[in-house]
């Protein structure tokens, strides 16, 4: 059964940026697109388990900081090698000025 989990204040994530969010023994990457819409994916790159929160957010994509693999953070699709396997994505929303994700 999934739950909506509180992540942070909206202004803690700038538009076109990403932060790390740890919950229990899991780690996530929480994004805001250029228009401010929040998104969430697994935190670690599917290529070699590097955290994506240090990566570059650009035009709906996240670039892994270690090998420059790319994913569409809205769908999780792998777009550029060495990333080959898709990222898991999670619903995200804004409630009362805070970002929540459903995990």
């Amino acid at each position: 059964m999934s739950d909506w989990v509180d992540v942070c204040d909206l202004d803690e994530v700038e538009p076109e940026d990403v932060i790390r969010f740890d919950h229990g023994d899991r780690t996530f990457a929480v994004y805001r697109a250029e228009d401010g819409t929040p998104f969430a994916t697994d935190g670690l790159c599917t290529h070699e388990q590097v955290h994506l929160a240090d990566g570059l957010v650009l035009d709906g994509e996240i670039e892994c900081p270690k090998h420059n693999g790319r994913f569409d953070f809205r769908t999780g699709a792998a777009l550029r090698s060495p990333a080959c396997d898709a990222l898991a994505t999670y619903p995200a929303r804004i409630r009362d000025g805070r970002i929540e994700i459903e995990i």
Binding site: E48, K66, H67, S81, P82
Partner: peptide, 10 residues
């Protein structure tokens, strides 16, 4: 070499 270089960085 794309993969070789990825390993070089890892």
């Amino acid at each position: 070499w794309r993969w070789s270089h990825a390993r070089h960085h890892t």
